[in-house]
Computed example of a mutant assay.
Amino acid sequence: MSARPPLSRLLPRRRAVVRALFTLTVTAFTGGSLAHVAGTPRDRAARESTGGFDETYRGRRIQGRPAPPDGRRFDVRVDGRPLHLMRCADGGYLTLVDHYQSYPTPLAAARAAVDELGSAQLAPGAHHGSVRP
């Protein structure tokens, strides 16, 4: 029968194992969190650009879906009225309501238009400058 090593020899090994497990756990959770944060905007932009959206934002209903036939343009509506979007060279979107700032997704552009409109409505045939008070 072998004799057990003294407790003083086991403690440094146990501490090293616990320290290594703690370091591994912290590294895994930090890496996972950073990967989630880094991937979220692109995933959301890809989902919006392919699938569309339908939400209520500040009491207004915003709907958007890819317009046929190629699906590269978006049909966006605010309270059922069309909101014309223009595609920028940087890949972003402009609206007729605020055509000085580019937004990364059609949803972000529609939200910015709702913010800018306030209580005003889009005119039924939304052409350049056709916002009614």
Rank of each mutant, 00 (worst) to 15 (best):
T30A: 15
R42F: 07
S8G: 05
A16K: 09
T56P: 01
L21Y: 06
T56M: 11
G52C: 10
S33F: 09
R15M: 09
P66L: 10
R47D: 11
R132C: 06
A45E: 13
R13L: 14
L117H: 01
G92Y: 10
L83F: 05
F53M: 06
S130I: 09
L122T: 07
L96A: 11
L11F: 08
R73K: 10
Q63Y: 08
P82Q: 01
P124I: 05
I62H: 01
R47Y: 12
A20T: 05
T40H: 14
V26Y: 02
E48P: 00
V18L: 14
D98N: 11
R111M: 05
V37I: 13
D90F: 06
A35V: 04
A67T: 10
P6G: 14
S33I: 08
E55N: 03
M86S: 12
A16Q: 07
V26W: 08
D115M: 06
P124Y: 02
G64C: 07
T95E: 01
R73L: 15
T105S: 06
R60W: 01
A108H: 00
A120V: 10
G64Y: 04
E48Y: 13
P5A: 05
S8A: 15
D70F: 14
A109E: 01
L85E: 02
S130P: 01
P106K: 00
L85I: 07
A120M: 15
G71D: 13
R81W: 12
L34P: 00
R60I: 08
T30Y: 03
R19D: 10
V17N: 02
A45Y: 06
R9Q: 11
R72I: 15
R72E: 14
F29E: 10
A120H: 13
D54I: 03
A38W: 09
F74P: 00
S119A: 15
A45C: 10
P106G: 03
G80D: 00
T50M: 06
L83Q: 11
T95G: 02
L83H: 04
R14W: 13
R77N: 02
A89L: 11
R61H: 09
P106S: 05
A110Q: 04
Y103W: 14
P106L: 04
R19H: 08
P133C: 10
M1W: 12
V17P: 00
L122E: 09
V97C: 04
H84F: 08
Y100C: 01
P66Q: 09
T50E: 06
R77D: 03
P82V: 05
D79F: 03
F74H: 02
T105R: 01
G91E: 09
P104C: 05
T95W: 00
P41W: 01
F22M: 14
G125A: 12
L85G: 02
R9M: 09
T27M: 14
A108N: 01
T105C: 13
D75S: 15
G64K: 04
F53S: 04
R42H: 10
G31F: 06
A35T: 13
L107K: 07
T40Y: 14
E55A: 09
